[in-house]
Design a binder for these strands. Structure first.
Lengths: 337, 337
DNA sequence: TAAAGTTAGTAAACCGATTTACTAAAGCGG
DNA sequence: CCGCTTTAGTAAATCGGTTTACTAACTTTA
């Protein structure tokens, strides 16, 4: 590998100043004759000149990078969203620094500071459940604001006038519950994730709303709260399957856990009990009985969050809150009563 | 947010030169009295000084960033590996630029160039199947080498004296086949991924080796080649389930496809036919009949690849090829004959 | 033809660090 | 007390771009 070509080399070869080279190659409005412009461009191409991002960043105070902090890339929802974010931002010349907080506040804070010191132009942030809890949120918020980096919250949010892109979880919960009621289900058990996450509290709100509209209530003992994992589903299944014949698990993982628990008890879906999940993970379709679940608009979320962060970078005062609807995917796991 | 503190500010506040500040804060060997050192450090802390990565990168010609190009972050194998890579590299002060090639050569090339122009210190690379095919590999290889950036191939490789971290797929295939033979299976069908990928060709090699050692052969018509996806599994299942009672799918996705195909035909595992997958994806455990499969040492792969890229950055001549063994995870999808 | 305007550029400062080469003062030996 | 070494530090160059302010030459206009 030979030495990298710099503006200086191009300028020398083209017989002009570095200024001219920079101006022309960046298509800046300037008083350079068409002839010279052409010569500079040709020289740059011939020398295979590639501008040095680092030097440019230092000069312009823009890095064309965006930090993405998510709680767990192994979760297919986040993996898919990151995939779309990367592809989308790349179209605008941005690259992403990916950080996985492992659902820990200390990492959220660490990575916010780190990305700020890397001078990212913006931050896309899905905070850990821990960070969003009463005791931590103010701390994280203050770290975030102190950096002065434009940011957009994605999926998980705290209240306040900050840009966010969200899923309409109230609507999602409502639709599931409405569907269950329409199919004759009245006594419903729910398995939630951490209630500090709006995804859980909002879905719960939607469920209650649908029930109330039909003069039904959600019994306290029919709520099992835990994490968004299979183990919680298993435990929730064990706890609820004695009491109810209908379970709404707030994500597919939990639903899979419920199925495991049901297997132990020899219960079959949908004859012995009905089940609804949330996320429409790939595997909900390949289950023995295909799972009725809710699809989140992942690609659209990614598009919106990219669009929004770019707007916020352009104008740090820009504020917008976007909430996207979910889709109820009806399959075979709910019995018509 | 107020203006960012720079070395200059610290120097001014501490009454020393910028040189002194830089020297002391970087713990460089230098002739600065303990007193002054202490004063500088305290001043820096008081002012909440955070060094500017960009400026440092320009000066040192090191960015402390590593580019990671993978074919599809939505594949849980890669998601998990990226997760570990990020965590591990972060310990050494590196951040990662994540790029998803979407299994396309043109993106491999685009991202290699792009990351090079971002001056990444190193590259971790799992190329697309397309790039590794006969017609493309030389092109990609030449782009890669022209950048001069140290790189390590991960999981998928081309032949040549370059650093790589691999899975012992020959051994993996061999172990599965040996296990099947030990259980009385003789007529085995296999569903492979793209044969341009060593993961497929190597597993196939292992299968054939095990068969040959037992004086058995693999019939050509019992091989179904396609992609590592559920659709290939479905098609392979349809094609093979008439001919054989034992199928080795080269990844779990394909195995799930086989199960779908079997459902159509009313066949049950393991009574009507036996099935083995590869990857030990989470979902292989929650199937009606738990899937016997092969676990890849994901975390170890990540650790090794991080270790190796750091060594290669330190010494670009460093060469090493690491091959990690797989684990056969025996569950319930293979019948003892 | 002198003043004003336009065209086609360039020199030099700047971004915020690191690093090399240098200096001033103090200490020390003889 | 002279010369040498050590100690404690600094000035200035550098990395590779961008950008501001300036100039020289050429055209117009009055």
């Amino acid at each position: 590998m030979h030495k990298k070509i710099t503006v200086k080399d191009v300028a020398l070869a083209a017989g002009v100043s570095r200024t001219a080279v920079s101006l022309v190659l960046n298509d800046k409005e300037c008083n350079i004759s068409e002839n010279t412009k052409k010569r500079i461009k040709e020289t740059a191409k011939k020398l295979d000149y590639v501008p040095n991002h680092i030097a440019r960043s230092l000069a312009t105070n823009k890095t064309k990078t965006i930090g993405v902090i998510i709680p767990n890339i192994s979760n297919s929802f986040f993996a898919e969203i990151v995939r779309h974010i990367q592809i989308e931002l790349n179209k605008s010349g941005y690259d992403i620094f990916l950080c996985d907080s492992d659902e820990q506040t200390k990492n959220d804070i660490k990575y916010i500071k780190l990305l700020s010191s890397r001078n990212v132009d913006g931050l896309i942030l899905t905070m850990s459940a821990e960070s969003l809890s009463e005791g931590n949120i103010n701390n994280v918020k203050s770290v975030l604001e102190k950096t002065g980096v434009p940011f957009v919250l994605l999926d998980r949010y705290f209240v306040g006038n900050v840009p966010k892109v969200l899923v309409d979880n109230v609507g999602g919960g409502y639709n599931v519950c409405k569907y269950l009621i329409d199919n004759g289900h009245k006594d419903i058990g729910v398995i939630t994730g951490p209630l500090s996450l709006n995804s859980s509290s909002d879905r719960l709100e939607g469920v209650i709303k649908a029930l109330n509209e039909n003069n039904l209530t959600l019994k306290k003992e029919n709520i099992y709260s835990g994490n968004y994992d299979i183990e919680t589903g298993r435990l929730g299944g064990e706890a609820l399957l004695g009491k109810v014949k209908t379970i709404f698990a707030f994500n597919d993982m939990q639903a899979f856990g419920v199925i495991e628990a049901a297997k132990e008890k020899g219960l079959k879906i949908p004859n012995d009990f009905s089940l609804v999940g949330f996320d429409d993970t790939f595997y909900s379709q390949i289950l023995e009985t295909q799972l009725t679940t809710v699809r989140q608009p992942i690609k659209e979320l990614a598009m919106e969050v990219c669009d929004l962060i770019l707007k916020c970078i352009e104008n740090p005062e820009y504020r917008k809150e976007i909430r996207l609807a979910t889709d109820l995917i009806v399959r075979d796991s709910v019995k018509k009563l």
